[in-house]
Design a protein around this nucleic acid. Structure first.
Lengths: 342, 342
DNA sequence: TGTACGCTCGGAACCGGTTCCATGAATGGA
DNA sequence: TCCATTCATGGAACCGGTTCCGAGCGTACA
């Protein structure tokens, strides 16, 4: 494995010059640079990342802390992150923390102990507030996707607006009897998680229009659990005319349950979700769209700009902890309509 | 940021001894070791990974090359990999290559140029044969999940058996007129991709039992595209009595299309898939189960054992390129039954 | 009492880049 | 013609661990 030394010797220059020539620094004549580059090419030289890290203190890597990777939202954010990081010639170091409490916290501690990255993005629900503030003291740019948090820069859907739009859509169609169903958060609850904000928005709309009040229902996160719970709910005599689901996964479970019980959608029951997962379209699910991959790209763009200002972290006294919220987009399909005339 | 030097001075020993004490090497008395550890703790010492990498040549990182991360199969494998890697105190470096041809190959080249890992797992369909053989020459343990390949150690479902079991299940129920629907592979086709092996197995079963022959149908990968294609297929007059789908995603699209067309499942149409995705259960989809997360854990276990033998790669003359195939498991639910009496 | 051996520990040479600073040559202006 | 800059380049000191090798000491055995 050839070293910089070998390249320098082959090109007849010093290590210092070879380094400058290959890294693109200026202060090297064009002819020398070309000679060094050719020598490097001939020898098949690949600079040692470890040595560069040690010398520069930069890893050219950004870390991602996520509670899971095999669900749509997280996978999409991660996809956006990976794509944008690649565009900036940065690598992605993945910490799949899993559910908090089930080993997730030990994995977090391992990150604090060993993780070496230039910037960090945490996908929400993986951490509690105390952990987030420890991250903030790491001296590197930290951003969160999926949750507005005071501890770091953050990016996420405007959940309040999403919940509001979903409920308002059904109210506009004439519904006066709605039920909100949300997925249970399997992790340590944070003050106001995404689903809680959607719920609160629903309740505000409900109060504003004087709708019939029904207690919010929580169903399991697994598709199977959600489906069974939805079935039981819809089987009751006084079911509502419309259902506002916290996520598309829940909405789809409701759709399936309705079908199995012979309840016609949207004639007898309207259903609306949030997310616009890929399967929402074929099912004709009306929903509130968000684009997590875009959030992932944006969070990396921010990290890169922060890095450009303070390459070695320690972003002086007043770090940017602003919040970017994305406007939800109502996508009307065929799962919502005016309520049946009683 | 305290260095090893500081710890050594605080503990009144040399750097060499401090290093040995903290890394757990022997040749250090118990009392000295404890003194050093306390000093390190007091100072909040965290060893520089970059320095360790440079000195040892080991990154304690394994790389993952995957065509995507936001689909069930890939996400699940990645989850298994991350979990197992964590258990071995290794990090995961993620390269989300995307579809081959759409920038995927440039990302691969970037990995070849910059990627520094102790071991590598490629999730299939991200690469063509030539790339795989280049990886094999990297001098580190390389394994593939999802595809048996001669270029590396590999792990995947026995696709032949899966295709066979699926078809045989329907034949046993009495079907004589089956159609195979598979998802189009959006990437550079490899000689025998997973879906091709399932298809061939289907065709063998079909020939063996002298079933009515129908040309295999390919549908788009997107849920929406698959659904539309399935709808068109089922709307034809002479539809088959049973459908063997290459994956659950396709099977679910068929199920939905059948429902919308008023075709009763399983009375009028049987449908079977492969995968057992989480949504298969609520839909009552009969399927062939596989457990990609387990494959991910196993591939890491293999890499770790290879690393234990040759910590610095270069696994001499005859690297292990054997193939592990997992037995498929038939999960019978309510989407399959005897064909309707004509 | 002398020698051999084992154990703990320190000195110093790595690993392979980056970068500060000094040097020498070439250029431009007075 | 001379001095002041600018520019390309080389020498050497880093970055922060790991590890080889040898020194010193204590014990055991002849």
């Amino acid at each position: 494995m050839p070293r910089l030394d070998d390249v320098a010797r082959a090109a007849g220059v010093s290590k210092a010059t070879a380094s400058r020539a290959l890294s693109g620094a200026d202060g090297v004549s064009a002819t020398t640079r070309e000679r060094v580059q050719r020598a490097a090419g001939d020898l098949g030289f690949r600079a040692s990342g470890a040595a560069r890290r040690l010398a520069t203190g930069l890893t050219r890597t950004i870390g991602v802390l996520t509670p899971s990777v095999d669900r749509w939202y997280f996978g999409s954010v991660l996809h956006g992150i990976a794509h944008a990081a690649d565009a900036h010639e940065h690598d992605v170091l993945l910490y799949d923390l899993g559910a908090f409490g089930r080993g997730g916290h030990e994995k977090f501690e391992r990150f604090m102990r060993r993780g070496e990255v230039d910037g960090l993005v945490t996908i929400t629900w993986s951490l509690v507030g105390g952990d987030l503030s420890r991250l903030a003291e790491l001296g590197i740019p930290v951003a969160t996707v999926g949750e507005p948090t005071p501890h770091s820069r953050s990016f996420c859907l405007d959940d309040e607006a999403a919940g509001e739009q979903a409920a308002e859509h059904l109210v506009r169609l004439g519904h006066r009897d709605l039920l909100h169903i949300m997925s249970e958060t399997e992790v340590q609850p944070i003050d106001a998680s995404s689903s809680d904000r959607r719920r609160r928005a629903f309740e505000r709309v409900s109060a504003r229009h004087g709708l019939r009040t029904r207690p919010v229902v929580t169903v399991p996160t697994s598709p199977d659990g959600a489906h069974l719970a939805a079935r039981e709910l819809l089987a009751r005599a006084d079911r509502p005319t419309g259902i506002v689901a916290g996520t598309d996964d829940v909405a789809l479970a409701v759709l399936l349950a309705a079908h199995q019980l012979g309840i016609r959608v949207p004639d007898e029951l309207s259903v609306i979700g949030v997310d616009d997962v890929p399967t929402a379209a074929p099912f004709g699910l009306t929903t509130i769209r968000q684009d997590p991959a875009q959030h992932g790209e944006d969070v990396v763009a921010w990290i890169m700009s922060a890095l450009a200002q303070h390459p070695h972290g320690r972003p002086d006294a007043d770090p940017d902890r602003s919040h970017t919220s994305y406007a939800p987009v109502l996508v009307i399909r065929s799962s919502t309509a005016a309520p049946p005339r009683a």
